[in-house]
């Protein structure tokens, strides 16, 4: 095996781990944002966000 094998494998693995990390973070963020939007749509708002004019759906 030439040295190129080791070089490309190490770059490949590092790239894979980094990409997995980035994707995981981004996807996690998207999911949380969607959940927040759903809650917002169902009428709940943060206590500090607006004067308590909302009528929570029960």
């Amino acid at each position: 095996m030439g040295h190129a094998f080791y070089v490309y494998t190490s770059y490949g693995i590092s790239g894979f781990v980094t990409l997995a990390l980035v994707l995981w973070t981004v996807i996690d963020g998207r999911a949380r944002r969607r959940e927040l939007a759903e809650l917002e749509a169902s009428g709940l708002r943060r206590r500090s966000a607006a004067p308590m004019a909302e009528t929570p759906r029960s």
Partner: peptide
């Protein structure tokens, strides 16, 4: 980004 996700998670 991860801190932001965690804050959102706790808010949810």
């Amino acid at each position: 980004m991860a801190i932001r996700n965690e804050i959102w998670r706790r808010r949810v």
